[in-house]
Amino acid sequence: MRTKGGDFIWFDGQFVKWEEATVPVTTHALHYGTSVFEGIRAYPSKNNLHIFRLREHMERLRRSASIYSIRVDYTASELEDAAIALLKKNGIKESCYIRPMAFVGQHGIDLNVTTRSPTHAVILVFPFAKYFREEGINACISTWRRINDSSTPPMAKAAGNYLNSILATQECNRNGYHESVMLDLYGNVSEAPGENIFVVRDNKIYTPHVGCSALDGITRDTAIIIARSLGYDVIERPISRTELYMANEIFLTGTAAEITAIVNLDGRAVGNGKEGNITNQVRVTYSKIVSAEITKYSGWLTPVW
């Protein structure tokens, strides 16, 4: 964090002042990346603040932790309650980002992490608005391949996985792009460094299935449900690099990115070089859902106040 978020952080069941939420330099997660996390958004409505798909995020945090035998001493429900209480403690009523984490503490320097290893759970929150430009972004195909399930589980939202994403992001930024698109080990489209990807061709929507080293994203799932409710076919399958250049539209999905169009890829305009109609429909519907304007999906929203 470059700047301070809320005044308090939830740390192992207690509210701790932001400046006092510290760990020893010998913390195992600092040395070996033994940490899992989530990114969750909360949005203001006319009379409340709603956390989007809170239960699904907390359940995925626990699943990610289980892959690495990182013990989480709190149920999904307890973590949900902690997140709500933290927002209230900090008096937050604006658009914000919630970051829960579970990590290995004073385990020692060996790598044999087990469910008996000491662990910690943390939730922090900070104000957050737009991550990317609403009008769309420029992207490039990264030369760095996405991690593969044969070496590191891509479906676990583990901190160490994002070293791979950092390399791809550094590369695209050096070359003047906003974001990159990563291919999997076999050369098929996987995802962006922090987002899932969708391709629109001939009024059909395609997205890589999770077997292409893609994270099983919660915003990805949301976009699929929205698109199908709008009457579009959504097909999960391998997507070749060339299909990106032939796409009518391309968009990314993620907690931070929400729904963001890629309007230029590798210096080539995607479609007419502007956000496409289908992307716009999905994005606008998503915005209405998270701000509690569409009651059909109210089950995805957890009120804070």
Rank of each mutant, 00 (worst) to 15 (best):
F126N: 10
A261T: 02
N164A: 09
T3F: 15
R237K: 12
N161T: 01
L167Y: 12
V122T: 05
N148C: 09
P118I: 11
T242Y: 09
G211N: 14
P154G: 05
E293D: 12
M246L: 15
K89N: 09
E275Y: 00
E293S: 09
Y286L: 05
I70P: 00
L265K: 07
H107A: 11
V104T: 02
H107S: 13
G160W: 03
S69Y: 01
H50Q: 12
S151D: 00
T253P: 08
K204G: 03
S298L: 02
L54Y: 11
E19T: 13
R60D: 13
G217R: 12
F126S: 13
Y297Q: 07
M101A: 14
T3C: 06
N48M: 12
G271H: 08
N203A: 05
G194Y: 05
G299S: 14
S240W: 00
N196Q: 04
E78T: 10
W10D: 01
K296V: 09
E236L: 11
G267N: 08
K274F: 13
S298E: 11
P303A: 13
L49H: 04
L30G: 04
G231D: 03
F8T: 03
S229N: 14
V199H: 04
T114F: 03
L49P: 05
G273W: 09
M246I: 10
T27Y: 08
E179N: 12
F128E: 05
G299W: 06
Y186S: 14
L111W: 03
E56M: 11
E19R: 02
R220V: 12
N112Q: 11
S151M: 07
G13R: 08
D12C: 09
A85Y: 03
F126T: 15
A247S: 14
W10L: 04
R268A: 14
R283C: 04
S45Q: 07
A192L: 04
S165V: 06
R63T: 11
A256S: 15
D12S: 08
P303F: 12
E275M: 15
F103M: 07
I224M: 12
D81H: 04
Y32A: 02
N248A: 10
Y32F: 11
L301S: 08
C172Y: 10
A158R: 01
M58T: 14
V72T: 14
T75F: 12
P154L: 15
P24T: 11
R283S: 13
T207Y: 02
D12E: 05
D184Q: 04
K130Q: 13
D233L: 09
A192E: 02
S240L: 13
P153A: 07
C140V: 06
H107K: 11
D184M: 05
F37M: 11
A85K: 04
D81W: 00
A139W: 14
I218V: 09
D221A: 15
D149I: 10
T260Q: 07
I98S: 06
T3M: 14
